[in-house]
Amino acid sequence: MSIFKKKNTILSPCDGEIVELKNVKDELFSSGLLGYGFGIKPTQGEVFSPIDGVVTNAFDTGHAYSIEGDGIEVLVHIGIDTVELDGEGFSARVKQGDKIKRHSPLAYADLELITKKGYDTTTVVVIPTELKSPKLSLGNKKAGEIAIEYR
């Protein structure tokens, strides 16, 4: 194996404040049962892919995406309980089967509308596959900045 192997990283999907998963107001995600991850309180609605990979699922409702690549799987879930909006406020930038580069557009979310409808816009990134010694970087981030490093 090359000693120049790049560090494994998962990027922030949007501009905003990264919080620990346990502080996300969704019992299922915060329980950690679905995997390691984080929440981000977005300050703008453009959402980008956290990893290089293939879009394995893009929900019709535009609020959730799964991407597989680099030997891991990532779920990006925009907002809490936003499945109930049935697509309102979301525009997908990808479809199932698309190849996607890290930090390229995944979806657009109309944060103002989602908030007005009474939903929390906190976006959750969970990694259901095992990560080796993951390290989360909290606080304000720009989309594309490193959120998680792992071995």
Binding site: L28, F29, A64, L75, E84
Partner: peptide, 14 residues
């Protein structure tokens, strides 16, 4: 009505 979305899928897999 929302089908098998993240929450039920999460509980099923967990």
């Amino acid at each position: 009505k929302n089908g098998l979305h993240a929450r039920p899928a999460g509980v099923i897999s967990a």
